[in-house]
Amino acid sequence: MKYECLLTESVQNVLVVTLNRPEKSNALNMKIRDELEKVFNSAAIDDEVRAIVLNSSGKHFSSGYDLEEVVRTNLQSFRHRILEYHYSVYGFPKPVVTVLKGFASAGGFDLALGGDYIIAERKSMLFRPEIRFGGPPLLTTLARKVGPVRALSLTLKGDPIRSSAALGLGIIDEIYEGRNILEHAVKTAFRLSQWNLKMLKILKGIANDYFLGNLYSNFQKEFDEFEIFLKDPNFLSQVQEYAKTIKQ
C-alpha cells in the first residue's frame, strides 16, 4: 500500500516504516500520524509481519508535531486521535526497533520511544522542549524507559539529551557507528522477533501494563489532564511564539 507521508518495505518479515517528510524534518502532521496508526494496527494482525523498524528519511528523525498545522487548526491537531495514535505504537504486540538520527524532538521524541530497542547514531539528540513554551510533555512514554521519577527530572530540566547521555540513562539501547544503521536495525529486529509471536505479545503486555499500570489508561489519563492547557486561551499564542523560534 502506498502512503502520502510514509514509505514501507518488507525485509525478512520485518516491516521497515520510514517517516517521509524530510522537507519538514518529518514533522508529525495529522496525515502522517493517521498513516502510522494504520500501519501499526494493520501489522499487528498480519502474521507475515514479525517486527517493525521505525526509520526516517532526511537528516532528522522527527521535529515533533507540525506546529504550522497546530496553529492553523487552532490546536485541534494536538487533539487529533491523540490516544489512538499513541496506543497503536506503544501497544503494538511485536518488537519495534527505532533508528534514531539527527534530532527527535517533542512528539518525535515520544514516537522514537515507542521502540522496544532504540539504535542511535553517535550525533543524534533527544529533546523535550514542550515545557519551555508551557506545553505538557508526556511522562508515560519516557517513564517506560527510565521510571517516573527520572522521567520527571529529565522533563523539568528541558535540556537536549545527546546519544551518549541517553545510552547511560537507559533511554536508548545502542549507539551504532557502522556504515549502514538501517541494515543493522533490520538484523536486530529479525533477532528480537525470532521467538513465538504469542509469547512476544504476552511479554510486551507485561512490560507495558504490570509496572506502571495499564498503558491505555495511563495515556488516557495524561491526555485528559492536558485538556486544561488546550482550553487555555493563552496557550495558542504560546505555541505560535515558540514556533517562530524553530524551523521545521
Results as ranks from 00 to 15, higher is better:
residue 2 K to Y: 15
residue 9 E to Y: 09
residue 10 S to A: 13
residue 14 V to N: 01
residue 16 V to W: 11
residue 17 V to E: 12
residue 18 T to V: 10
residue 27 A to W: 07
residue 28 L to H: 02
residue 28 L to N: 06
residue 28 L to Y: 04
residue 30 M to D: 07
residue 32 I to M: 12
residue 32 I to F: 04
residue 35 E to N: 05
residue 35 E to M: 07
residue 36 L to D: 03
residue 37 E to K: 13
residue 39 V to Q: 05
residue 42 S to T: 09
residue 42 S to L: 04
residue 43 A to F: 01
residue 46 D to K: 02
residue 56 S to C: 01
residue 57 S to H: 03
residue 60 H to K: 03
residue 61 F to S: 00
residue 62 S to H: 03
residue 63 S to R: 13
residue 63 S to W: 10
residue 65 Y to R: 05
residue 68 E to L: 07
residue 73 T to L: 06
residue 74 N to A: 08
residue 74 N to W: 08
residue 74 N to L: 06
residue 75 L to Q: 03
residue 75 L to I: 06
residue 75 L to T: 05
residue 76 Q to P: 00
residue 78 F to W: 15
residue 80 H to K: 10
residue 82 I to C: 14
residue 83 L to Y: 05
residue 84 E to R: 11
residue 84 E to H: 07
residue 87 Y to Q: 14
residue 90 Y to D: 12
residue 91 G to R: 12
residue 93 P to K: 08
residue 94 K to T: 03
residue 98 T to N: 09
residue 100 L to I: 06
residue 101 K to H: 15
residue 102 G to F: 12
residue 103 F to N: 11
residue 108 G to L: 04
residue 111 L to G: 05
residue 111 L to H: 04
residue 115 G to K: 00
residue 115 G to E: 03
residue 116 D to S: 03
residue 117 Y to R: 05
residue 118 I to T: 02
residue 120 A to K: 11
residue 121 E to K: 13
residue 136 P to I: 13
residue 138 L to W: 02
residue 139 L to V: 04
residue 142 L to D: 02
residue 142 L to N: 01
residue 143 A to D: 05
residue 146 V to C: 07
residue 147 G to M: 11
residue 147 G to I: 10
residue 148 P to A: 10
residue 149 V to R: 14
residue 151 A to M: 07
residue 151 A to T: 06
residue 152 L to A: 12
residue 155 T to V: 07
residue 156 L to C: 04
residue 161 I to A: 02
residue 164 S to E: 15
residue 165 A to M: 15
residue 167 L to M: 14
residue 168 G to A: 10
residue 168 G to C: 10
residue 170 G to H: 11
residue 170 G to W: 12
residue 172 I to V: 13
residue 173 D to F: 13
residue 178 G to L: 15
residue 182 L to C: 08
residue 183 E to F: 13
residue 184 H to D: 04
residue 188 T to C: 07
residue 190 F to D: 08
residue 190 F to A: 13
residue 191 R to E: 15
residue 192 L to V: 08
residue 197 L to V: 08
residue 197 L to Y: 07
residue 199 M to I: 15
residue 199 M to P: 00
residue 200 L to H: 02
residue 202 I to N: 07
residue 211 F to R: 00
residue 212 L to G: 01
residue 213 G to D: 10
residue 213 G to E: 11
residue 213 G to F: 06
residue 215 L to E: 04
residue 223 F to R: 06
residue 223 F to E: 13
residue 225 E to L: 08
residue 226 F to T: 09
residue 228 I to Q: 08
residue 228 I to F: 03
residue 234 N to H: 10
residue 235 F to R: 04
residue 236 L to D: 14
residue 237 S to C: 02
residue 238 Q to S: 12
residue 239 V to N: 05
residue 239 V to G: 06
residue 241 E to M: 13
residue 242 Y to C: 02
residue 243 A to N: 15
residue 243 A to C: 08
residue 243 A to Y: 12
residue 244 K to A: 06
residue 247 K to A: 10
